[in-house]
Design a protein around this nucleic acid. Sequence first.
DNA 1: AACTAATGCAACCGCCATACA
DNA 2: TTGTATGGCGGTTGCATTAGT
Length: 334
Amino acid sequence: MGRAPCCDKANVKKGPWSPEEDAQLKDHIEKYGTGGNWIALPQKAGLKRCGKSCRLRWLNYLRPNIKHGEFTNEEDRIICTLFANIGSRWSIIAAQLPGRTDNDIKNYWNTKLKKKLMGIMFPPSQKKLRPLPTSLHQVPPFPNPQSVTMTPSMDKDCTSHNYYSPETISLTDNYSNSKTSLANNFPTVLQNQEGLVSPMQMKYYPMKDNLLMFSSEASCSTSDGSCSQISYVREMKLDQEMGNLQNYIPNNGFGESHKFMFNNYESSNFGGENVNFNQWVDEKPTEFSWETKMDYDLMEDVKKLISSNNYGNEFNCLFDENKTQLEKVMYYYY
DNA sequence: AACTAATGCAACCGCCATACA
DNA sequence: TTGTATGGCGGTTGCATTAGT
């Protein structure tokens, strides 16, 4: 049995609001308020609308001090920063932008701002992006890094680089306190040849929804990649401890020639605290932060993707002789 | 000028959390 | 403690408008 509808759908008007309806709703709320009950409001106001529809119309359009029109660069910056930190929690983001509604911000992000960011990351000279290959599409959006605790996770000294079965890795959403297994949430998570995954990889992926990052460190290679992994984990750990994720997006406005984002640990001191965070740079990255064993088909897709976009010349894409590691590829992709 | 594709945005849907009886 | 009603939210849809051919 399904859920009972919130109103009588048959006797309720849908679609765009007329100026008369707007005036009726506005007039009623200004005179009597919402009465703390949206469901009952349309009847009192003489409207043939669902209560939810009234609420939405009022909050998104009719209530006083709503700001419409162009978003400023400062608003763009705030939205990007918050999105990088908390993801698509539009109501929280809207609370930081007086006069803007969550719906407005959501629409703006989906239709314009995301593209604007892409324009910065991939200037027109770098060709138009094409759709991701199938297996890349299968990679689901990832939760916000700050909202999820993964068990098992890295030990404090970041010396462990074990792989686990996806079923044995649990994710706890720190907001809802709900638990799930990695296998449930990320059925297509990258696995090694034994079907195992590294929590370190998963800690990396959540940086942004719909963004994938492939990278490895070619010059600092050990048999298990521990060197680069340690570097990466330290960086993420420090970033998380400092609540500092705005490094992941350009925080100095738009229109500048920032093109790439990468983990630069050129001056990292693994034993101490001297670790550079992610940075936006305008030159081709030459060093990479971590190393992962990738599914072979996925690697092939990545390779095709890069060559199809003529990124091959810009991003040195190599595979190791055993086809188990993508040695040098690094960029973000929607 | 006519048609098609892309874009922008208001509105809807359905899920989840909370309040309350 | 449980069940139900409502509010709130994020994802998605559908339509009007604009841009491109």
